[in-house]
Simulated scan of single mutants.
Amino acid sequence: MPPVLILLTLLLMLGACGGEGDHRGHEVKPNSRPYMTFIKYVDANGNRKRCGGFLSPSLPLTPPGLCPLSLHISHLHSALYSSMRVILGAHNIKAQEETQQIIPVAKAIPHPDYNAENWSNDIMLLKLQRKAIRTKAVRPLKLSRANAQLKPGYVCHLAGWGRKSLHATKGTDLLQEAELTIQDDQKCKHLFHYYIKTKQICAEDPKQIQAAFKGDSGGPLVCDNRAYGVLAYGKAKSIAPGIFTKVVSFLLWIRRSMKPSNRC
């Protein structure tokens, strides 16, 4: 594997770092999800924002990064990127842990076919200013294989620092994880008018105990130790399925974007 790491992420429909974040789940063992990243920045109005993401083995570009944003493309500009910081190796985001690496974002590469009307192709690359250092607390998560598919009923996991309940007013400081089950595409199309089964995955807890809540946009849907999706959106103030961008549908675009001729 090349020694460079990348972060995987999207743009979201529900406001800055707002998509439906993570759980009613449980706290994970510190640094047991070494691929998780925490993103913080200041928006155009001076408001502090936060969201999640994950590390993945890179393609040959130095140093690239893909990370989660909950902004419409029209809001993306250089001033925003200059304020972004990616925190790797974190468990408690309020603590100055020795395992943490903080790296500024240099530039973003949004998907050229992103559609702000139906939130399709909601993915982009963020180039980091320097390469992440691989440690026990900072390790990549493999992407789904080409042509990989998940059948309804398959159990996966979602981690992040999002709100822990519908009534919480802010995200959690400690990394949490929820267990979610892949849902039938027809059910998701009924609940979400813009759902696109070829580009998105729908997952929820059938018992409606754990869920995707506000604050963990960009978090990975992990199945068999691979990233199959990236949290994109859901229904506000509801224990409804979370909609994830389907990683396998964008593998070719990721590879093309990371070719030397496309370096930024």
Score class of each variant (00 low, 15 high):
residue 151 K to E: 15
residue 177 E to Q: 15
residue 182 I to G: 02
residue 209 I to W: 07
residue 162 G to L: 02
residue 159 A to T: 13
residue 132 A to L: 03
residue 188 C to V: 06
residue 217 S to L: 09
residue 216 D to E: 12
residue 156 C to G: 10
residue 217 S to R: 06
residue 183 Q to N: 04
residue 210 Q to D: 06
residue 172 T to R: 08
residue 219 G to F: 04
residue 191 L to K: 12
residue 182 I to P: 04
residue 145 R to Q: 12
residue 209 I to M: 13
residue 121 N to M: 05
residue 114 Y to C: 04
residue 146 A to K: 14
residue 130 R to K: 14
residue 205 D to Y: 01
residue 141 L to G: 02
residue 118 N to M: 02
residue 176 Q to V: 10
residue 121 N to K: 05
residue 213 F to Q: 02
residue 148 A to G: 05
residue 209 I to Y: 08
residue 192 F to G: 04
residue 216 D to A: 14
residue 173 D to H: 13
residue 179 E to G: 05
residue 146 A to W: 09
residue 152 P to V: 01
residue 222 V to M: 09
residue 162 G to V: 07
residue 140 P to V: 11
residue 113 D to A: 07
residue 164 K to M: 14
residue 141 L to D: 07
residue 130 R to E: 14
residue 137 A to Q: 10
residue 169 T to W: 08
residue 127 K to M: 12
residue 116 A to G: 09
residue 144 S to K: 02
residue 148 A to C: 07
residue 128 L to T: 15
residue 184 D to M: 04
residue 185 D to N: 15
residue 164 K to C: 06
residue 147 N to T: 04
residue 131 K to H: 11
residue 169 T to A: 12
residue 116 A to H: 08
residue 129 Q to M: 11
residue 197 K to I: 01
residue 168 A to M: 05
residue 119 W to T: 09
residue 155 V to M: 08
residue 198 T to Y: 03
residue 221 L to M: 03
residue 210 Q to N: 03
residue 194 Y to H: 14
residue 171 G to A: 11
residue 139 R to F: 01
residue 200 Q to W: 02
residue 134 R to S: 12
residue 217 S to C: 13
residue 206 P to R: 03
residue 123 I to R: 06
residue 184 D to Y: 07
residue 149 Q to G: 00
residue 211 A to G: 09
residue 166 L to I: 12
residue 180 L to T: 05
residue 218 G to S: 12
residue 139 R to C: 02
residue 187 K to N: 09
residue 204 E to F: 02
residue 182 I to L: 15
residue 127 K to N: 07
residue 160 G to H: 08
residue 219 G to S: 15
residue 183 Q to V: 05
residue 214 K to S: 13
residue 181 T to F: 03
residue 184 D to R: 10
residue 179 E to L: 03
residue 147 N to Q: 11
residue 216 D to M: 04
residue 122 D to L: 04
residue 153 G to D: 10
residue 172 T to G: 10
residue 151 K to D: 13
residue 190 H to C: 03
residue 179 E to F: 01
residue 147 N to R: 11
residue 199 K to S: 10
residue 114 Y to Q: 01
residue 163 R to Y: 11
residue 188 C to Q: 08
residue 128 L to I: 15
residue 202 C to T: 03
residue 113 D to I: 00
residue 221 L to G: 00
residue 212 A to F: 00
residue 200 Q to G: 05
residue 207 K to M: 09
residue 118 N to T: 12
residue 184 D to K: 10
residue 130 R to T: 12
residue 212 A to R: 00
residue 140 P to D: 13
residue 210 Q to A: 06
residue 203 A to I: 04
residue 170 K to M: 14
residue 196 I to G: 01
residue 143 L to P: 03
residue 124 M to P: 01
residue 145 R to L: 13
residue 112 P to C: 05
residue 157 H to K: 13
residue 211 A to T: 14
residue 193 H to Y: 10
residue 120 S to G: 06
residue 222 V to I: 12
residue 130 R to Y: 10
residue 149 Q to R: 13
residue 209 I to D: 11
residue 171 G to R: 09
residue 153 G to I: 05
residue 217 S to P: 10
residue 152 P to K: 04
residue 122 D to A: 15
residue 145 R to Y: 08
residue 213 F to Y: 03
residue 139 R to P: 00
residue 132 A to M: 09
residue 173 D to T: 07
residue 172 T to L: 06
residue 124 M to D: 07
residue 116 A to P: 08
residue 178 A to R: 07
residue 178 A to K: 03
residue 183 Q to W: 06
residue 134 R to M: 10
residue 187 K to G: 01
residue 138 V to M: 07
residue 117 E to H: 09
residue 181 T to W: 06
residue 122 D to T: 02
residue 186 Q to N: 11
residue 168 A to C: 13
residue 168 A to Q: 08
